[in-house]
Each structure stands twice: as C-alpha cells, then as structure tokens.
C-alpha cells in the first residue's frame, strides 16, 4: 500500500525522520509494531536495492500519519534520505507483536541509538494509561540522540547518557538505571544487542521479578513470516532454545527469554 511523505527531515549525518500519511497503516498500528518500506519510491521498478527494510512505528498522529526514524547506514536508508515531500512510499504493515501496556505503574524505558523509535509511542501510550515513565536514552555521542522535541510526550523524567560524555551523563545507559535507586515495576528496552543484554542483566540484578519487554531487531527478508531469515533464539519454559521469527512472534519479546549468547 502507498503512504504519502508529509515530512522528511535530516537530523544529522546519521539520522533522519519521516512523517508519512496512511490511514490504513495508522489504524492498524500500536506501540511495538513495525512496518516494511520498499526501496522503490513512487512507481519506480528498479530491482537494486531489492529487499524491503523494517522500521519501528515511532508515533501515530491523528489516526492517519506515522512517524518513523531511520539511521542512514545502507543503500536503502540513503535512498530514504533523498525522498521528498509528496513522494509515495510503498509500505507493508502494521506487522509484528506489540508491547504489553501496564497501568498505573512506575516504568523505565531504556533506549539506545535508533532504539529510541518504538519508545516514543510506547512512552506516550504508557503515560496515557496512568504510568509514570522514566526514559533512559543512550548513544555513543550526542549525534546519536535525536532532538528532544520529538520525545516530549513520551516521558515524565528523562536521563540522557552518551558514551563520550558529549551530551548528558558520560558512560553506558545502564549506569543511571542502576544508580537511580528507583524501584521500577516494568522495564521496556530497545537498542543494540549488547545494550539489551546489559539492560536485562542490570534489571535482574535489582530484582529478578521486574518484567522486561524487549523490541528485538533482525535483518528481515520479508517481514511477514515467510522467509525464515530473522530468527531470534528464545528460551522456553523447560529451558530448551527455540528459534522464533522476529517479524511474527516478535519483535517484542520477554527480555528474560532471549538466549543472548546464541545471538550472532
């Protein structure tokens, strides 16, 4: 289906965001869902690049527009950087599982780099459900932190952390999470695999009863469960490792059930 580009803003050399219009996509999307974007803009028929790319739903406005954030890393995201207002994207979605929305709890969101995207709509939804939301947002440098005006609706407290100290606290995002001393009821996280694993360890070290939901990332061939290219190793109740499709059984997983040591 088509989605019209309303806005395409370059944040810096590394990140951009787009607002696209699609009633269908907006209506079917919830916090945690993702969608696929074709590298063929408008009615182009080029076959290189070929495969669609997955993006998290970052926000929904007025039931008809979607915000998503992209990192300029490869050929497709470079193509997206050049897209203009009024262009048509070809999209498939909404896809995947959604976050569990708790009510009236003290909640931490932990985001790393581009992992901020699904946290925006998640934080907004959690706050609408009476939760108090603290967002721990980390990046390698200040260029990994998107402008906070995109985030304003999604937190009650914000803690920015950069590895080089160029913005906010210096260090890893788990540092203030551990140091806060606050008792969170639920934790949600999205970011690089190493960070996710560290967040699960840190939260479990505070209290292993705290629920952690993770939005996982994997290279996807189709996004709809057909290609079997995006498996995530998960731990079943009896301890066996079961591969699950990130695109259909995920991208939202129970953080304690991810077999991180098996992830490539």
């Amino acid at each position: 289906m088509k989605a019209k580009v309303i806005k395409n803003i370059k944040i810096n050399d590394k990140y951009g965001y787009m607002v696209i219009e699609s009633k269908e996509l907006s209506k079917s999307s919830e916090a945690g869902n993702f969608f696929m974007v074709s590298p063929r803009i408008n009615d182009e028929t080029n076959s290189d690049p070929l495969i669609n790319r997955a993006f998290a739903i970052a926000d929904i406005f007025d039931n008809d527009t979607i915000l998503f954030i992209y990192q300029v890393v490869g050929r497709v995201t470079k193509t997206l950087g050049a897209v203009k207002e009024g262009d048509d994207l070809n999209v498939v979605g909404a896809l995947g599982t959604k976050f569990t929305i708790c009510e009236n709890k003290n909640v931490a969101l932990v985001a790393g780099g581009a992992g901020i995207a699904p946290m925006i709509i998640l934080g907004k939804t959690l706050r609408a459900n009476g939760n108090k939301v603290t967002l721990f947002y980390g990046g390698a440098t200040k260029n990994d932190i998107i402008p906070t005006d995109l985030l304003s609706t999604c937190y009650d407290n914000l803690e920015i952390v950069t590895f080089d100290g160029s913005l906010g606290l210096k260090g890893l995002v788990t540092k203030p999470l551990l140091a806060s001393g606050e008792k969170f009821d639920n934790v949600y996280t999205c970011g690089p695999t190493g960070m996710l694993s560290a967040v699960v360890k840190a939260v479990s070290s505070i209290d292993d009863k705290i629920d952690i939901e993770i939005s996982m990332e994997a290279k996807m061939g189709c996004g709809i469960g057909a290609c079997l290219g995006c498996l995530i190793p998960t731990i079943d109740n009896d301890g066996t490792i079961v591969n699950r499709r990130c695109c259909v059984e995920g991208p939202i997983f129970d953080g304690k059930k991810i077999a991180f040591e098996r992830l490539v």
Partner: peptide, 20 residues
C-alpha cells in the same frame, strides 16, 4: 527440520542469497 544457523539471508545486487 530446524534449518541452518543465522545469519541465513543477505541481500546482494538485485538478488537475495539465502541459506535457510
């Protein structure tokens, strides 16, 4: 059949390499 370990897919010029 469980299939192969990851990574199983990679995009190449106008094509997709898979080893599911």
């Amino acid at each position: 059949v469980e299939g192969n370990p990851m990574p199983r897919i990679v995009e190449t010029a106008s094509g997709l390499l898979n080893a599911i």
